[in-house]
Design a protein around this nucleic acid. Structure first.
Lengths: 344, 344
DNA sequence: TTGAAAGCGCTAACAT
DNA sequence: ATGTTAGCGCTTTCAA
């Protein structure tokens, strides 16, 4: 093994050790331009033997090419985002681009800092969750000069491109399904997170459509922090203790919905007869529950794939126009916690 | 809002617009060196108005300082790693350092590529999961000239520093607890992942200790891919169909353990009397289950914190020696699926 | 407190 | 097929 050294090796070291110019070494290491097979092999061997690792900082400065895509998301703890990320990774697989992730904790100021930080590395594109950003963030994105794709949501004005679902519509669809199934005393359980705009929009669409049938949310319960599954249990217990006549519970995400489901099954409550349940996201976890929770797929992987495709296309051909808007259609899966539509 | 432009602004643009030298602008924006309050304010205002975003590439090249810490992990889908990440983020919070994440999908060749890629950005430190790497990876890390912390595991020879738990010991401890509780027909359920070295080590420690009591694993079942919860169910059903006389099931992770637990409860099997269960990891999810699964905490957050602290300390004082080894002690939580020790 | 010059390690563009 | 030259946009160092 080569000795541990203080100063990292430079192109010059490889150049001297192999007896060709730095330029030729550079060509070999990037597979760029014509180099004779002999030199190519010799240089590669020398670089390998020395343990040379190219300095991308210098390379990026000289070529003004940085093959990184900034991906800015609110959290990694919510399985939703790793899934989007995996879609992005897959979408960038066949390109030279690589995702770099930044986390905002749902805080606009932190988002601003993270964006500034990432943009200062001059990435080839930006993928950012949501359409709500501070003025400064929007300005930075607009001025960045690189493709920007806002993801997960389409209810709003994107800076540039946008890939997602309409959460308002998702809320409406779920409300329709619930009303059609004949439920009428509806409880809502969600997070206390005013900055989760997508959950808010779903709630708005949901209540709006209920309103059209003359139904109002009968009671509601909120949580923050802790194990979502355990919170789902607790909230459900609390809510039903207070409003025992509810016949449907709409959860703002599948994890708390799953907690509620487990609790209600233990109580021996008839689901979906006496009580209907629905969550949101279509998480894989649901497959293992005693009963499949009604939910709506948020198209997370697909969103990642499409966003990556937009960045990749515009990277390959910078003359392509921006402003593309892709609205995906989530599908409602009634699972086994939403009874069939009532005839009539 | 400033107009969208093709060429990003440079220090020179700010310099010209504010009438002071580039050097002074640079000083203002980095809060370095003495600058009069008047100039400072003027420059800041101009930079803000123009929407200047410094070019970190150029800055890093000139100063040979890159305040990034490369974090290399096998996956984001397994909640374990996001938790480690959050520990790392927290540990770097008060420093100038920022984590940058790379994912290997448990593939040594991909780990090698990711490491090469990240090292070519000359990070201030590297945190990498596990102690098993390709020769080339080890060589790169050793030669990198920056602090390297291998995390999650201490059973092996670290390149430099190391923070984790002994998975062999964890497996042994669980075996002891099971034997002590009087179980004797033991089944094992895990993944088909030969490259998950930590799971392998736990299994080795487990069987070794069982062996000392003259017990062998009576049957085993493996899975790959899919919803871990659902797989836990299926595997449990399959295993018990084949070996109905088992009285204990040891799962290689909590998610499949939870699936098994839900299945067995549905079957009305007496837990932990007729059948004991245990998983591994201490995931938050378990709090919401009908019964708490026996498990062992892998100290994920703490590992992230400690690893970050090592990098931060050596970044602040490069003369500090490396080679620090931190072994954390996971605690066994018997939950409600491991019966009390049998007297005698 | 401010500025001027040199150069970080690489690559684009132009020789040869 | 290979080499030479001139920066990329910043910071270091030294001078004023």
């Amino acid at each position: 093994m080569p000795p541990r050294s203080k100063r990292p090796l430079t192109l010059r070291d490889v150049s001297e050790a192999s007896g060709v110019s730095e330029m030729t070494v550079s060509r070999v290491l990037r597979n760029k331009g014509d180099v004779s097979e002999t030199t190519r092999l010799r240089v590669k061997e020398v670089a390998r033997r020395l343990g040379y690792v190219p300095n991308k900082i210098a390379g990026a400065l000289a070529s003004s090419r940085v093959n990184l895509v900034a991906v800015v998301i609110p959290s990694l703890g919510n399985m939703v985002f790793p899934e989007v990320l995996s879609g992005i990774s897959e979408g960038l697989e066949e390109t030279v681009l690589q995702p770099v992730v930044g986390v905002t904790d749902y805080l606009p100021e932190k988002e601003e800092r993270v964006l500034f930080e990432m943009l200062s590395w001059r990435p080839s594109g930006v993928i950012v969750a949501g359409l709500e950003h501070s003025e400064a963030s929007r300005a930075m994105l607009a001025r960045s000069g690189v493709p920007v794709v806002e993801i997960m949501d389409v209810d709003g004005e994107p800076v540039d491109s946008c890939v997602g679902i309409s959460h308002r519509r998702a809320g409406r669809q779920m409300a329709e399904a619930i009303v059609t199934a004949g439920y009428g005393r509806i409880g809502f359980l969600g997070t206390t997170m005013p900055l989760d705009h997508r959950a808010r929009k779903r709630f708005e669409g949901f209540t709006q459509t209920l309103g059209k049938s003359g139904i109002e949310i009968a009671d509601r319960e909120f949580y923050s922090g802790g194990s979502a599954l355990a919170k789902g249990r607790e909230m459900t217990q609390t809510l039903l203790g207070r409003s025992p006549d509810l016949d449907f519970l709409y959860y703002s995400n599948d994890m708390i919905g799953a907690g509620g489901l487990l609790y209600l099954l233990e109580q021996g409550i008839d689901i979906p007869g006496r009580m209907g349940l629905a969550g949101f996201n279509g998480v894989e976890l649901l497959d293992g529950l005693p009963r499949r929770l009604a939910t709506m797929d948020a198209c997370r992987r697909e969103i990642g794939l499409r966003a990556a495709a937009i960045i990749a296309a515009r990277h390959a051909d910078p003359t392509l126009p921006g402003g593309e808007i892709v609205e995906l259609s989530p599908t409602l899966d009634p699972g086994q916690t939403l009874r069939p539509a009532r005839p009539g």
